[in-house]
């Protein structure tokens, strides 16, 4: 926003200087491209090919071995009009995203604030809370299947408080909450991001607020929170995208990966996987993947458009 006045201030005799500068810039940009070349080559040759193939494939009845005939929009029409499980899986996925994203974001932030206090032994606490994030998926899920079993540890603890715990993974009403509960355990990754950004908030701002007589909550609300909004925004966007892609948990934790009791864990990606790799209806699965892509794209665009209303970037001219 400060640029235009500078540009107009450039005089004709300065243009040469600018050109020389731009050759340097060109060199720098060449180096830049060189640095990202491995990624770029991977993107073009490994990702883009299959991506385009799946786009074309979504308009065919491709099943890998016997046919790949162009069938127009039939896959898409079937998805919306003639596949009940499509809607079930979409509902399950939305349920998961809508409930789990806010909860995990708040939990990660809360944990980060707690772990940002000056208490002896804090490093140990930080390690403990981060630990679940480095454990590998399937092992963790198997562990949780034990914990969440009707007579497992979770229900035993609930029993101490006189609560008759549900049958978590066997009761269709409780399977998704069980999964979200489990995901809460491993918020360590985003917690770390919040912790870093919390420590980056300048002390001078807190001092100024204290001089103005702000209490702890006001300091958090008016200093901490605005200062960490960029990380909050990043976490929100990536969590939403990750939430839509939920697959492993349901695949491992439901019997035979079939989507749990009464299809309560049949998420979009699991349904897609079953169509692709169980019955080899590849064309249809490709079409499903493009619908998921569109959904995530639209939501991410909305997120980005809404961002200027609440995300505060330091150094940006702010009204």
């Amino acid at each position: 926003m400060m640029e235009p006045p500078i540009k107009t201030a450039i005089h004709s005799n300065q243009i040469k200087k600018v050109k020389r500068k731009s050759s340097l810039q060109r060199k720098e940009s060449l180096q830049g491209y060189l640095f990202i070349a491995p990624w770029l080559i991977g993107m073009v040759f490994i990702t883009a090919g299959p991506l385009l193939f799946s786009f074309y494939g979504s308009f065919t009845n491709y099943d890998i071995t016997s046919h790949m005939d162009f069938i127009g929009l039939k896959n898409y029409i079937r998805m919306f009009t003639n596949d009940d499980l499509f809607w079930t899986s979409l509902f399950n996925t939305l349920y998961y995203v809508v409930i789990s994203v806010p909860i995990t974001v708040v939990a990660a932030l809360l944990l980060a604030v707690l772990l940002n206090q000056k208490v002896p032994g804090m490093r140990i606490f930080r390690t403990i809370y981060y630990l679940p994030a480095i454990l590998s998926g399937v092992g963790v899920y198997l562990l949780w299947m034990q914990l969440l079993s009707p007579t497992g540890l979770v229900n035993t603890v609930l029993d101490w408080f006189g609560i008759n715990g549900p049958a978590w993974l066997f009761d269709p009403k409780w399977t998704k909450p069980a999964l979200i509960f489990m995901k809460l355990w491993s918020v360590g990754g985003s917690m770390l991001l919040y912790l870093a950004s919390l420590q980056g908030v300048p002390k001078s701002l807190y001092e100024a607020a204290e001089i103005d007589g702000a209490n702890a909550f006001q300091k958090f609300r008016h200093v901490t929170l605005p200062m960490i909004t960029p990380v909050l925004f990043f976490d929100l966007v990536t969590s939403t995208i990750g939430g839509f892609q939920i697959f492993q948990e349901a695949y491992v934790m439901s019997q035979n990966g079939d989507g749990g009791p009464a299809n309560s864990l049949l998420f979009f990606n699991l349904h897609m996987w079953n169509k692709a790799f169980e019955v080899f209806d590849m064309g249809y699965a490709m079409a499903m993947s493009w619908i998921l892509f569109v959904i995530i794209l639209v939501l991410t665009i909305i997120n980005i458009k809404l961002a200027p209303r609440w995300v505060h970037y330091e150094g940006e001219k702010n009204s």
């Binding site: 009940d84 499980l85 269709p172 079939d258 989507g259 009791p261 009464a262 299809n263 049949l266 079953n274 169509k275 169980e278 019955v279 209806d281």
Partner: peptide, 12 residues
């Protein structure tokens, strides 16, 4: 091909 994925949830 995937009829059990439709029937089993109804049984559930």
């Amino acid at each position: 091909p995937d009829y059990t994925s439709i029937i089993n949830p109804e049984i559930d």
